[in-house]
Simulated assay, not measured.
Amino acid sequence: MPGNSIGPASPCPCGLDASYGDCCGAYHSGRKQAPTAERLMRSRYSAFAVGDTAYLLRTWHSGTRPPSLELDARVRWTGLEILATSDGTAFHQEGTVEFRAHSLVRGRHPDSQHELSRFVRENGSWVYLDAV
């Protein structure tokens, strides 16, 4: 599953001080579920970084999920900044995460994506709903 030379012992792409295997890799493999909207956001960013489209689709709300997803192989994700969060804890049913995701296109063109994402609980688990 992991792509872009990211293995279980590699630093987690999400930016937290943990290995991929102990952090987002545990969510990607299904060993754990993201406990907050922010952790789901981080794990989804990491899924983009490692090329795990199955996880991205699995954690997308059933009402907004596309039938399939194809990632651009020319994009290498290089960093994630969490700018703000609202709600999205164990005590909430919805939450938002504002973030900026940095990338390199074709290995040399820096780019970034700024988004305010909405998350909700579906069947007890946090899922990505849409972008505001």
Rank of each mutant, 00 (worst) to 15 (best):
M1Q: 08
N4S: 15
N4G: 14
N4H: 15
I6D: 10
G7H: 13
P8N: 07
A9P: 03
A9S: 15
P11V: 13
C12P: 13
C12V: 14
P13D: 08
P13I: 09
C14E: 11
G15M: 09
L16M: 15
A18L: 13
A18M: 06
A18P: 00
S19H: 12
Y20E: 12
G21F: 01
D22W: 02
D22I: 03
C23R: 01
G25F: 09
G25R: 05
Y27Q: 03
Y27H: 11
H28M: 09
H28D: 10
R31I: 05
R31C: 04
R31L: 09
R31K: 11
K32S: 04
K32M: 05
Q33S: 11
A37H: 10
A37E: 05
R39D: 14
R39C: 11
L40I: 01
L40P: 03
S43P: 11
Y45I: 09
Y45Q: 10
S46V: 04
S46R: 06
F48H: 13
V50D: 00
V50M: 00
G51Q: 10
D52V: 04
T53L: 00
T53F: 00
A54C: 01
Y55A: 02
Y55L: 02
Y55F: 14
L56F: 11
R58A: 15
T59D: 05
T59L: 05
T59K: 03
T59S: 13
W60R: 00
H61F: 11
S62C: 01
S62P: 03
T64C: 04
T64D: 04
P66L: 02
P66T: 02
P67S: 14
P67Q: 13
S68T: 05
S68K: 04
S68Q: 08
E70R: 04
E70G: 02
E70Q: 07
L71H: 01
L71K: 00
R74L: 00
R74E: 01
W77P: 13
W77C: 08
G79P: 13
E81K: 12
A84R: 15
T85N: 06
T85D: 02
T85E: 04
D87R: 15
G88T: 07
G88L: 04
F91C: 03
Q93W: 03
Q93T: 14
T96S: 13
E98T: 15
H102W: 02
S103H: 08
V105E: 05
G107E: 04
R108D: 00
H109V: 14
P110F: 07
P110W: 05
P110D: 06
P110Q: 09
P110A: 13
D111P: 00
D111I: 00
D111L: 04
S112N: 15
Q113H: 15
Q113C: 12
Q113V: 14
Q113A: 12
H114E: 07
H114D: 07
E115A: 12
E115T: 06
L116N: 12
S117W: 12
S117I: 13
S117E: 12
F119Y: 15
V120W: 10
R121L: 12
R121V: 11
E122R: 11
N123D: 14
G124I: 10
S125D: 15
S125I: 05
V127M: 14
V127Y: 13
Y128H: 10
Y128E: 07
Y128D: 06
D130T: 12
D130Y: 11
A131L: 08
A131Q: 10
